[in-house]
Design a protein around this nucleic acid. Structure first.
Lengths: 157, 157
DNA sequence: TTAAGTGCGACCGATACGATCGGAGATCAT
DNA sequence: ATGATCTCCGATCGTATCGGTCGCACTTAA
């Protein structure tokens, strides 16, 4: 439950690896190719290639063709959030279908839906969580994210 | 992405509905049967039945057989957390496979895995979020959950 | 020109989800 | 007490999404 897909896993691993060889924020660093990452982390080569392609298409990384080609971060690691990465691979993230329903399609339960509002709040909280954490935070290993729930105070659980 | 299953949706709706007809914490209230919930929220009857069965098996609700039978909350709404509900329907919740890996099965990437630690921290945060919110909070409509990320301070995003 | 590398599309197989059907047990009315 | 009705309960089936694979075209440095 709430498990993120293998492709998302691979995307995070790959980006973390690419970021780790980018010394500074501005320094171009060396490019890293698909094969290198696949062998390092035991990821199926072809699948990882697909993942990197979509990441490139969504502006997370830049691709360089030909020999000595490969990928490098499109922008600084501290400006790439976990939420952006996940949304690049899979669609927009949301607990419910109705969170991003376009006009015309509305769920059968919409009329008397009693969980829409609370779920949207939870969803926002999770999104904030993922959008406040960057690739840089994953590198430095000090995410240090805390959650405070006022409704928890004074209640015995 | 991160979307919870239809069964989980139905479980939340049903529990919210059952809780809404339980006046007090101790008052038994009236029992509510599957058909009533299914018609109210346009949920396929048979599928909802399955959901309620598993909820009953996991101690979330109590079942009463026969005519005038139905379901009622097994314990007070303020002692049923969203996390408990979701875990009853789908397995234990976790972003990664490795978060609850039993001995013997370990992922190929475990050796050089670079995202395990940060992901586990995110996972814990989400779990706290879901485990601090109760059915009662969904009823009263005042979840009021806030998230504070220290790493966000002083960084321009 | 050639080899190494990315980019891109179509294609399978498996897992799990949504949905359905028939049966067992309990309770109320007669 | 007995039947009929209403409810819960377990097993089963189709399908869609995801993980994974294959092949070829395009680009670029040597």
């Amino acid at each position: 439950m709430l498990k993120l897909s293998k492709k998302a896993d691979y995307a995070l691993m790959a980006l973390q690896h690419i970021a780790s060889v980018q010394p500074g924020d501005v320094t171009p660093g060396r490019v890293v190719n698909t094969k290198e990452i696949a062998e390092e982390y035991n990821i199926p080569l072809e699948l990882l290639a697909k993942v990197l392609q979509t990441l490139s298409k969504n502006g997370m990384i830049e691709s360089h063709n030909g020999p000595k080609g490969g990928y490098l971060l499109a922008r600084s690691a501290r400006h790439i959030t976990i939420a952006q990465i996940l949304e690049s691979i899979e669609g927009p993230l949301g607990l419910t279908d109705c969170s991003h329903e376009r006009s015309g399609e509305l769920c059968m339960q919409r009329e008397h839906c009693n969980i829409r509002t609370p779920l949207l709040k939870i969803q926002d909280s999770i999104y904030q969580l993922l959008n406040n954490m960057t690739l840089q935070d994953m590198l430095s290993g000090t995410p240090l994210i805390t959650i405070q729930s006022p409704s928890a105070e004074g209640v015995t659980r």
